[in-house]
Design a binder for these strands. Sequence first.
DNA 1: ATGCCTGCGGTTCGCAGA
Length: 268
Amino acid sequence: MKIVTWNINGVRARIGNLLHWLTESAPDIVCLQEIKSADDQFPRLEIEALGYNVETLGQKGFNGVAILSKLPFDEVNRGLPGDDADDHARFIEGVFSIKDDKGKKTALRVVSLYLPNGNPIGTEKFSYKLAWMERLERWAAERLEFEEPMVLAGDYNVIPEAIDARFPENWVTDALFQPETRQAFRRLTSLGFTEAVRATTDAAGVYTFWDYQAGAWQKNNGIRIDHLMLSPEAANRLASASVEKHVRAWEKPSDHVPTAIELSLQAA
DNA sequence: ATGCCTGCGGTTCGCAGA
C-alpha cells in the first residue's frame, strides 16, 4: 500500500498537477497540506472521478489539510485536541480497514498534519509551534496504546538534522532548525515512532522543499521537512520510502514535493 | 541587511509561507 504526503501549496492553483500526479504515482492514500481552500471550494469532483474518497479540513485563505483515499473511510477525526482556542486547520485523521498477518480485519490510522512554521523565533508564532508539538506528542502517545499500524504524515516544518539541509548554517536562526524544535521532533522517536525516509537511507541531499526564491531549486538549495512517522506496527511493514523530486520541475510547481512510503499490508 | 517568489483575499497591496 502506497501512502504519500504532499504540501501542495494551494489545491485550486495546483489541481492540474495534482490530477496528473495521482494518475502517474497511483497512491492508495494521499495526505495533503496547505490546501488553502474552504471545504466547499475544494475541487473534490475531479479527484473523486479518479476513484478517490475525499475528506478535508479546510480553511479560507491559508492552512487546510485533506486525505484522499482509494480505501473507504471508516472514521474521520478533524483537529488536534488540546487547545479549544486553536482555529487553524492543521490536522485530520482517517481510519481504514486492513488485513493483519493472519488475514484478520484491523485498523490503519493515517494522519495528515501541517505543523506550524513558527517563524520568527522569540514570538508567539514560535511558542504556538512548540505548544502544537507538545499537543501532537500527547495525542500520539495515547494513540500508540492501540498498537495499530499508524502513519503520521505531513509537513512538520522541522529540519531534523544538519544533513537534512543543503546549507544548514543558513537555518540556525530559523524556527525549523531550533534545538527546541528538533528536540520536540525527537520526542516522537522516543515514544516509538520511526521516521520512514531515514529508516531507509543515510544519504545526504534528500530534500522535500525548495524555496521559490533566489533560484533555490536550480541550486539544489533544499531542506527535508516533510516526514512520515510510523508506529511500530507500521514500521515493521515498511518496504520502501522515496521522494518524488521530479514533480518540483513541473510547470507551476508546489515548493514541496510528494514523499512516499510503501507498506506491506492489504486493504480488508 | 533585505528581498528574492507564489497563492489567496479582495481589489492592484498585504499577509503568509519557510
